[in-house]
């Protein structure tokens, strides 16, 4: 009797809530987290005949690479997405350098600003989580959570009981219908048809300007001095037979203007390969990449991911940095 009433009430409340959110047009989706990242970090060490191709960086590469296409056109490699939205990646590069078993290829999406020593530790909390808290138990939990998040809107914390009550009591609007959709492999799609791209572009440009004001660029000499440490990490990976490819992903419009003004390529990016003995690729060197539209000046629509992935692989393969 108790079980019956308990199940009845729980199911009725949860299903009713789920239907309410769905009636408002919300959809379930995977939510990126440290657990999901840690699950992919394990993939770096997975034992198969393929070489791990680890993708580091932030949103530009995380939302641009089609992982299925990458795996299909580079069958010798096992692509792993470790880029993290909004975080420069050098802490994870350091983690891979310290991993004695790692001898794969790293494709590191980074711009001159991200190579400033100030940003080296941005992704460190993810590394710490993987090293200190990630356990077999959480691995199983995360697998089940993937399934739950793919099935139910109410698995998203934004639709949780307390956030909803606080929104209602404060007269605030329902959650934003996200235009970003994550996959289990942590790559993601942006659907720019669902957003005001002009406003998104302006927000990006304004945010970038604000960050430049609050955190002005280091002098080229300071910047170069900080790279010595990065060079050591690259050497550690190369000594084990691995490789690191630095890749400055495309930007356009005002964002590109401001970035080039703050970090003139001749003073920053172009001096990278003189300091670090690793291949470096800038989007301006590949016309096929430059031709792909960037809806907000920084990211591409998911409909262009296939074209982008092919163009990037062509560029890497043509230079002999990866083998088809």
């Amino acid at each position: 009797m108790v079980c019956f009433f308990c199940a009845l009430v729980a199911v009725a409340v949860c299903v009713g809530t789920e239907l309410h959110w769905r009636s408002l047009g919300y959809e379930p989706g995977i939510i990126d987290s440290k657990l999901l990242w840690a699950e992919q970090r394990d993939q770096v060490d997975a034992r198969d005949s393929r070489t791990p191709l680890v993708i580091l960086g932030a949103s530009r590469i995380e939302f641009s690479i089609d992982m299925d296409i990458l795996e299909a056109v580079l069958p010798r490699y096992r692509p792993v997405m470790l880029a993290i939205n909004g975080h420069y990646p050098l802490a994870v590069l350091r983690d891979l350098a310290e991993d004695e078993d790692f001898n794969g290829v790293v494709l590191c999406d980074i711009d001159a600003r991200g190579l400033s020593a100030h940003y080296f530790d941005m992704q460190q909390p993810y590394v710490d989580y993987h090293r200190k808290q990630w356990t077999p138990s959480w691995r199983v939990h995360r697998r089940a959570l993937d399934l739950w998040q793919s099935t139910a809107v109410i698995a998203n914390p934004d639709f949780g009981l307390l956030p909803t009550l606080l929104r209602w009591s404060g007269g605030r609007a329902n959650p934003w219908k996200s235009h970003i959709r994550f996959h289990r492999d942590r790559s993601a799609d942006i659907d720019f048809q669902r957003v005001d791209t002009a406003a998104a572009t302006q927000a990006f440009v304004d945010g970038f300007k604000r960050r430049l004001q609050s955190d002005p660029p280091p002098s080229p000499e300071q910047w170069l001095a900080g790279l010595a440490e990065v060079g050591n990490w690259v050497e550690q990976i190369k000594r084990r037979g691995g490789e690191v490819i630095f890749y400055d992903t495309p930007t356009s419009g005002k964002l590109r203007e401001y970035a080039d003004e703050a970090f003139p390529p001749s003073l920053y990016w172009e001096r990278l390969s003189a300091t670090i003995h690793a291949p470096a690729l800038r989007y301006t060197e590949i016309s096929a990449l430059e031709d792909i539209p960037l809806a907000d000046g920084s990211h591409l629509d998911f409909r262009n991911k296939s074209e982008y992935t092919h163009a990037l692989v062509d560029a890497l393969a043509d230079r002999g940095w990866v083998q088809r």
Binding site: F5, C6, V9, C14, L161
Partner: peptide
Amino acid sequence: LGLLLGLMTAMIVLSPGD
């Protein structure tokens, strides 16, 4: 009791997060 436990269960399910 069933109602109380059912509401608690629903609140547990409706409190996802880290």
